[in-house]
Nucleic acid binder design. Structure first.
Lengths: 378, 378
DNA sequence: TTATTTAATTTAGCAAATGAAATAATTTAT
DNA sequence: ATAAATTATTTCATTTGCTAAATTAAATAA
């Protein structure tokens, strides 16, 4: 349908906002003749439209923008209970969202997802762009391309081909991805890191997950497990707790949400993260210690990521309460202390809140990425 | 000069050995017509030649191979004193090698390198292929493309443009690269890991260096420092030594060659790695402990690399004496213990010797890679 | 010998991109 | 107001890199 040329143009417009034809030719190293032709076709297909004119010396440049109604995408997160479902446009704006109970039975889950898709289709005849794809997020391992869930502990699935099944049921392209990977694609496509060639993302919730964009592409690793960070051996000296992986002192046993809540409970503190953060802010010593230790542990792990991979930025997404807490300060301190001092340059650390919706939005970004970029690089 | 098509063919032949035209068409997803034309041009340029015929059912296939005299390459290692210089063919075979004292004065160093190149040119009129490029290796940070040495502690250089300077003096393309990066390109092009999409390499000598091939490409990281592993915080619990980076307990203070020799000296053992390994083999407790500790420390760091990046293989290059020692066994054990158990699959760990020559050969591979592959992927 | 099979080449042609010239829409200078 | 300059975009003839289909080449099997 669309050629690489089309996708390359969409890629630039999605990432850097409206550009003129001449800009595009320069950015993409294409001739102006080619850009004219490619843009004409994209306008005919109602993917792009002409925006305001920018006046300079000579003939004004006509800016070209990605239409909000070029297409729409459904994102489904099976990452936790309840499942979240969103409908987005190509810019990542959420137009509709709801939840439904997570069903672990494969057939029932497929039926529920197909039903949700049908509901959305019924409710949205054509006010926004035509539905162009579905993304599904699971916590677990997904095969690189065949869109099969190889293993998921939360769902209890092994080698389940939800991708092809849901595609058949809905008649739409379906993309399945691991939670951290979906989150980083969402950050790349819908977030603020689209211009970066290399960046990493780590999220902290029930577990700790990580993913890397390397050379503009998601780095899956050889068996799809790249970005795994939760079992970094971090607490050798401290009272190392046993981890579900069999070792002791893994990052997850110190810095994941359940670990923080568990430590708080053992210290007689309330079992709610908001309250714990508040106590720490008021100076309560146990709360401070627990959050400080968790932040430091994650910081040390991130310093390793920085040394090994040297990304331009690491995005850390965590509970909104933690974003401005001791946890965050300890994290930054630990990174400062453990990263080899560099004259010119420092990996940027960006902390932001993680909302349950974000996984579903990430899921939608998978479908959007495919629609906009095809298999293109740049 | 050569198109992407040519380079893609050379890439396959270099990596997988001789192939028929039909094989190439299948491997590269090209039409047989294209392969015929591209191969004809490469044969006319004396890059390829026809080899033996392989008989099957129908018409026999003519195998095509990369000519040993297609071109030759000079590799210069300024990684340590003395500097090593090699002359190789496109398969990485070393045809001539020698050393010269390392000079840290920039002008003197350039003059020495240019002189060495001229000597080689004089001594080798045209018995092997025409000289097609020069690679230079330094211990330090090199800018991504402009071939400028940004910083090197051993040489005391900052922002020195040896690449362009040497290119001007010799009239040949020059490629400058960091030591670990050159080593991994050498492994990819001249070694046994050419078919792998993702692998990592770590070497242990005066320091510890690492590099990653991701998606067939060298991953330099945003400021060229990717692969940095020597300052992983590893020895928190043990008697952590101060490191030149300012922290304590870095991997380098435990597992690098000087660290091992230093620990041995403090225990009253001889200051030679061969003797230390021999003592350990005989069961001498201090020697065993020192090597075991060093191997374990490196193993723990590598387990982190495996979790974060999930490469298909990690190549570890170290002193020949260490390859079959307690160090190696401890390293493998530590990796086994710390990597999250995987059902189907395990990152392969390959230990091999590191000879002083290898950096120079790696340097030559940089030039060879450019000659053979251009800027191509696959 | 003849049919079959696989490899390689030829041929005509397409799709994407290009360079150079032409056209369009402005601002600045006169 | 008009002409000159400037920059954006389009047109058009052409090149580049590839392909599909038919053809030729060189072998084996019957």
């Amino acid at each position: 349908m669309f050629s690489t040329g089309h996708h390359r143009i969409l890629s630039v417009l999605s990432r850097s906002g409206p550009q003129s034809r001449t800009d595009l030719a320069r950015i993409l190293n294409l001739s102006k003749a080619s850009v004219t032709a490619l843009v004409r076709e994209l306008i005919e297909q109602n993917i792009l439209d002409e925006r305001e004119r920018v006046f300079g010396f000579g003939r004004p440049a006509v800016m070209l923008g990605l239409r909000q109604d070029a297409a729409s995408f459904i994102g489904i997160s099976l990452q936790a209970d309840p499942a979240h479902i969103v409908l987005t446009d190509p810019h990542g704006k959420v137009h509709r969202q709801f939840t439904m109970p997570l069903v672990t039975d494969v057939e029932a889950c497929l039926a529920a997802m197909a039903g949700a898709v049908q509901d959305i289709r019924d409710a949205y005849p054509d006010t926004i762009g035509a539905l162009a794809g579905i993304g599904v997020v699971i916590a677990g391992i997904v095969s690189g391309n065949s869109q099969i869930c190889l293993a998921s502990a939360t769902l209890g699935w092994t080698d389940v081909d939800i991708g092809p099944r849901l595609a058949e049921m809905t008649g739409l392209p379906v993309f399945v991805e691991n939670d951290a990977n979906a989150l980083i694609i969402g950050e790349q496509l819908f977030g603020n890191s689209g211009e970066l060639d290399d960046f990493s993302l780590v999220f902290v919730s029930e577990g700790i997950g990580g993913a890397h964009i390397i050379n503009r592409h998601l780095h899956r690793g050889h068996h799809g497990g790249a970005g795994e960070i939760s079992h970094s051996p971090i607490a050798i000296d401290l009272e190392a707790l046993p981890c579900r992986c069999g070792n002791r002192g893994c990052l997850e046993t110190v810095a994941a949400l359940p670990a923080i809540l568990g430590a708080a409970r053992r210290s007689g503190l309330p079992g709610d993260i908001g309250q714990i953060v508040e106590l720490a802010t008021e100076g309560q010593p146990e709360a401070l210690a627990i959050l400080h230790r968790a932040g430091t542990a994650l910081g040390v792990s991130l310093s390793q990521v920085i040394q090994f991979i040297d990304p331009l930025r690491i995005v850390v997404r965590l509970d909104p309460h933690l974003v401005e807490s001791v946890f965050a300060r300890a994290l930054k301190q630990a990174v400062e202390a453990h990263v080899l001092r560099r004259e010119s340059y420092q990996t940027e650390l960006v902390l932001g809140p993680l909302y349950p919706n974000d996984f579903a939005t990430g899921a939608a970004s998978l479908a959007a990425q495919h629609f906009l970029f095809g298999n293109t690089s740049l």
